[in-house]
Nucleic acid binder design. Structure first.
Lengths: 339, 339
DNA sequence: TCTGTTTTTGGGAGCGCTCCCAAAAACAGA
DNA sequence: TCTGTTTTTGGGAGCGCTCCCAAAAACAGA
């Protein structure tokens, strides 16, 4: 098959391949009428530059890597991730990048693939989904000056760009709403405390109680792992402490919590009011429909790609930050039994 | 940063870059002691060949593209897809391929990205998830001789490799089980009839009825779209026809079906027995837990990658086929009220 | 030892682009 | 018209690999 090259386009347009390269790359110093003539040939032929040749010649590869670290591989099947990926993919498509997926299942896989990310032989930059605060991958990426954007904020000391939602505020608003409804003995099922999102949503819960001078009861605060089964087990533990409401740090854990209530012959909101986080589509169709903190997951994905492109074009420093607001979506699960 | 190249490894090993290339690519005609010496330098330095250089030099890029066509982009958030992707990613990791994701959201995106797939400038081959039987993408891939493996079988006339599960048999087994339990007025909520999986699971349902000489009742057969909302609407339609059981062609639609029953003040299996397909994790924790046809989703992903690598190494013809068996998982939702 | 054959190894060339520098063209002012 | 400056354009070189062909080395038999 006869492959289109800069040279071939140059011949058709009656210029040199350097001129064609200037047009393709939108360089200045090309006479307008020459630019038009070259662009017309490009449009007519459907010519695209070869990404391997560009990469080899010092240009970038045009590939963005999305890394799901090993520690949270088990959560990859949570409905959050496809939405995040849709946002990321859509922004990649808009900005002419290809999205490559790095799913680390085992330590061996991680050790095998990490050098590819660190040496940037494949990817121009990395979008890194949430990882435990002590995971060494992020500091390796920083050390190797790999352009990186994290989904979710890192530990404060790390000079890395990130996109996030306002987890502290969102959790605060959820718990505050339960307090407004008259709940007083509010429990929480939070995420892993070795993640910033776990810490932040927990902090929001604690802040809301403190703002009403309600002391936090340790027996009402259960750490879980963002899974449905984890939510189920956590609610089983909480029930015996007789909360009148529970803040659950994700919709998926909330499904598990509702299941535990059903199995105990109880229900939300009659016995225990429930408020969760995410506003995934099943939140609206759960039994009962969940009051939840909506976060703009696809928008985070889009924003991460645009932030990464900004790093690629304008340098890694200073690190960029983007924090989206959340929105409390009130449904049936939060009706409170006021004691 | 000082980049490792064949030339540098050659100098360290005291051979030429051609010899190093032979070792890296496991070519014959290298003296054993030379091979060992070169391999030791490679191991010590962590050298990897540059994929862009290999691609440009005529070798392959080492990238496999996973395409989710536009028509089913709305289903990408179904929990089926992350599992499929995990299987695909795991096999790519094992076989030293990078996985690139092509999510087509709009026709414009499809037109923009399809040439990249057809001209193979990025990917060595394509894994293509299910698409409508009339989607032109598959025949474009065939015409351009792009190594392609489909998830799910295509229309019979197409000479393309695929991996699938035994949809007809699985659906047959599910419906047959309902008949064994005494159900006689069995409805079906099936997938889009412009997809082979939709047609096949429907056929299995019809085959099971026919095997017991039970005429199919058109009013009991509802075409849906594999979504939760679609399952909900379909069950709302079915209820008025008073089936004593319903075969639902996916777990996700079954969730919607259960929600419709609840809203009608009914339940499974007391009022209407329900059997579904997929055995996604929430099938076990649904209320009631779903009897469902288990399909090995991750294994399909692994198999698709290995089939694609076989095509790349041994030629596109003849097309390969792999069909995994299914397994009926019996849970509470299928208990039947025998009239 | 010599000659023909086989095995092993090395280096030229090219893949398709970008960068850089120099040449050509265009322009402006004296 | 001439000269100096600016703008536009072209082509050499190289990125890091693979392929191919030729050279060198090794081998075997006379």
């Amino acid at each position: 098959m006869n492959k289109l090259t800069l040279e071939k386009i140059a011949k058709l347009a009656g210029v040199s391949r350097s001129t064609v390269s200037r047009v393709v790359n939108d360089h200045p110093n090309v006479k307008p009428e020459v630019r038009r003539r070259v662009q017309q040939v490009i449009d007519e032929t459907g010519y695209h530059p070869d990404p391997a040749a560009r990469s080899l010649a010092g240009q970038r590869s045009g590939i963005i890597g999305l890394v799901i670290p090993r520690a949270f591989q088990f959560l990859f099947t949570d409905p959050y991730y496809p939405r995040l990926m849709q946002g990321i993919a859509q922004a990649c498509n808009t900005h002419n990048y290809i999205l490559s997926l790095f799913l680390f299942h085992t330590e061996e896989e991680e050790q095998k693939l990490t050098p590819k990310l660190l040496r940037q032989q494949f990817v121009d930059g990395v979008i890194l989904s949430a990882l435990p605060t002590d995971d060494p991958l992020i500091s390796q990426l920083i050390k190797n000056e790999v352009p990186t954007v994290m989904i979710g904020r890192p530990v404060d000391t790390l000079p890395v760009s990130y996109v996030d939602v306002s987890n502290v505020d969102g959790a605060f608003e959820a718990v505050d709403y339960l307090l407004e409804l008259g709940a007083r003995r509010i429990g929480a099922i939070v995420g892993p405390q070795n993640t910033m999102v776990g810490l932040d949503r927990c902090q929001g819960y604690l802040n809301a109680l403190a703002s009403r001078h309600i002391p936090a009861d340790e027996s009402l605060l259960i750490e879980s792992d963002f899974s449905e089964a984890g939510g189920y087990l956590a609610m089983q533990q909480l029930i015996s402490h007789q909360p009148d409401a529970v803040f659950v740090a994700s919709d998926t854990m909330a499904l598990g919590a509702l299941r535990a209530l059903r199995e105990a012959g109880m229900s939300a909101p009659g016995d225990i009011a429930v408020v969760s986080f995410d506003d995934l589509p099943f939140a609206a169709t759960a039994d009962p429909p969940l009051t939840t903190v909506r976060q703009p997951i696809r928008r985070l994905g889009v924003q991460a790609v645009e932030m990464l492109i900004d790093l690629l074009q304008n340098g890694l420093r200073p690190p960029r930050h983007f924090t989206a607001p959340t929105e409390l979506i009130v449904r049936q699960s939060c009706g409170a039994k006021i004691k």
